[in-house]
């Protein structure tokens, strides 16, 4: 297990050296995107429209933040991760088309995303569910908000972050998936637990 501090834009080479269980902190630019923003970004790509932000080498954070406006400036109050499995529908294409290098969320992602991460060089960083104040503290500035018509949680927030983390690498760019490994072990433990309880 090693700790890495990454700066955006992150290169494919940077992500290839990471292994599951490594810890990463990200400095630079990350964007938030939930279901709606993923869907729209892919629509833009299909229609050959330019995205409002160049996503190459950035991190995408599965998060619907609480943001307030003070003196015409956006301030992120709380920004914990949301469940990532919902984005499994879109993430492989998202990685392929936009060359994002890190996906941040909670709960892990499935086989399709794991495969895309291996193929194109990206990782999944698990951020502690509910640790919303910790996340907000690392967000230094709201650079812009795009697609606000989707609503505050679903909009694409472009955030400047400093040492955003700790993120545990739970899917690496070599096809390893920590959540799947844990699930296998849990399944193996089931019978032992039954035995011990006499059920």
């Amino acid at each position: 297990m090693a700790t890495y501090k990454l700066k955006t834009p992150i290169s494919e080479e940077d992500t290839r050296k990471l292994k599951v269980n490594d810890i990463i902190y990200i400095t630079g630019t990350i964007i938030t995107a939930r279901d709606a923003a993923h869907r729209r970004a892919l629509e833009f790509h299909r229609e050959k429209k330019k995205l409002p932000v160049n996503l190459q080498g950035l991190a995408v954070f599965h998060c619907g933040p609480i943001v307030k406006k003070e003196n015409d400036k956006w301030i992120v109050v709380a920004a914990g991760p949301t469940t990532s499995t919902r984005m499994d529908l879109f993430e492989d294409e998202f990685i392929k088309n936009f060359k994002i290098r890190v996906v941040i969320g909670k709960g892990g992602m499935g086989k399709k995303t794991t495969k895309a991460m291996k193929q194109y060089g990206a990782v999944y960083g698990a951020f502690t569910g509910g640790a919303a104040v910790l996340a907000a503290k690392a967000i230094k500035n709201v650079k812009s908000v795009e697609w606000y018509d989707l609503g505050m949680p679903e909009a694409l927030w472009v955030l400047e972050v400093e040492e955003f983390g700790p993120l545990t690498v739970a899917i690496d760019a070599h096809g390893n998936n920590l959540f799947e490994d844990v699930q296998k072990k849990v399944e193996e433990s089931r019978q032992k637990i039954y035995q011990k309880l006499g059920v």
């Binding site: 619907g64 609480i66 502690t128 509910g130 640790a131 919303a132 104040v133 910790l134």
Partner: peptide
């Protein structure tokens, strides 16, 4: 979790969104 808990308490901010 512990860091977040302390920070929330200190800044009187909700610990989870």
């Amino acid at each position: 979790i512990l860091d977040n808990m302390e920070l929330a308490e200190k800044t009187r901010t909700p610990m989870c969104q």
